[in-house]
Design a protein around this nucleic acid. Sequence first.
DNA 1: GCTCAAAAAATTGTCGACAATATGCTCGAC
DNA 2: GTCGAGCATATTGTCGACAATTTTTTGAGC
Lengths: 244, 244
Amino acid sequence: MDDVPPRQPARTPPGRDGRGRMAADEAYARLRDDIVKGRLMPNERLVEVDLAAALGVGRTAVRTVLARLEQEGLVVHEPNRGARVRMVTEAEALEITQARAALEALAARHAALHATPAEVAFMRETLAQMSVSLKAGDLLAYSDGNARLHAKIIEASRHQTAARLIAGLKAQMVRFQYRTVLVPGRSARSFAEHTRIVDAIATADADAAEAAMRYHLSHVADTLREMTSARAPHRTPVPDLVHF
Amino acid sequence: MDDVPPRQPARTPPGRDGRGRMAADEAYARLRDDIVKGRLMPNERLVEVDLAAALGVGRTAVRTVLARLEQEGLVVHEPNRGARVRMVTEAEALEITQARAALEALAARHAALHATPAEVAFMRETLAQMSVSLKAGDLLAYSDGNARLHAKIIEASRHQTAARLIAGLKAQMVRFQYRTVLVPGRSARSFAEHTRIVDAIATADADAAEAAMRYHLSHVADTLREMTSARAPHRTPVPDLVHF
DNA sequence: GCTCAAAAAATTGTCGACAATATGCTCGAC
DNA sequence: GTCGAGCATATTGTCGACAATTTTTTGAGC
């Protein structure tokens, strides 16, 4: 349990990096990315001095970074016992998805109220691309379009608070991705649901947009719940795309 | 602008406080309370060395505390320019309320699914107390009961994620409290709405509970929106109770 | 008297060192 | 052989000092 690679030799020269950028911010971005992208495993211990060496900053900076990440919900920190990458249980993942759904429904409502014609056009275009990907059976591309569409809706909502909260929830979920795309017939229904959402936004029908998003996301949550409860105690073979 | 009281002489003896409690956590709780309870004004500068002296800890601890509070959305921090108490605009307050509403609706749904008989009994009791307060015209007591009821619903939901997010949003709002109670007839309708919510929870009707909470909170948000837009540029004379 | 540049002060960013605490290990008792 | 007490190690918590940056003040020139 102690065969850690002999500590990478400080990827940045101790002074500073590219430009006047602060060391702590750089370290924060790097460590956050390492967690979110899965390079650090859940429950893995985060020893301050090791991180300091690896990130090329002092221990104080690391400490600040860890405090931020803890508040963000990406690491847990027991007093005098150090920090670990937070382990998100399946039950928690479901909760996070539900909370995200509630906030995305809010975002859809506000998108209907505030979306510009250009934004609506972008949504329709993305929808068209998704349709192509779907017919071609390219589920990866479909999921990409899916993500772009949801991101655009959030942007169009002009709702900073919802956007901020959703982003935070998303970060905690990256490790937990289910292959709802693979549920038979799910993608086709998903596409229809997305079309309804965009239609509602295009016609500035706030109630319809919120309802359509809620309807869509309730299906996603249901699928997720079935998957987690139906699946036996053994772990998922290959975690894959979450398909909102 | 520099007539700060001459710096209180470290309320805690430098060593430690009551028991093995950590200095940083104590400092965090204290400073957070100072912000949330309004003892520190919005936009007020938070100079690290001053806080360190006032809280009886070193500057490093203060720095960690500020990082946490920034992530929590209670302070803003510009690089090399220090931290300030975050100023929440009226538009932001409305956004926060909307997000909170979306999450409380989710909580109500889950409360309907998970509330114990004891919790339902507590809700009914609280409702009865609110009725008494309402008839007596004691809006302060009514608002207290209101807060207790909402807290109980969130607790009964067993939804950690929603609870966490709502708590965070609430903290940012403490300074921004409107007197929706004073809107004529609002309280009576509010009471009816609350009754419907509890009824739905008691009968384990998740859809009804969520819908009732959504209906209730949409009225709150509407009232809030009217108040902020209708009011002239001059500030509210007396910020008062938010009335969910 | 006003403007702008340079020095001075204030404040933040960073680091290494020391103290406090938890963890792991050794070794004797049974 | 197992258990527990005491010691050694590893790691975190805290602090003060120095460097870097921003803000304020000073003062010379017009």
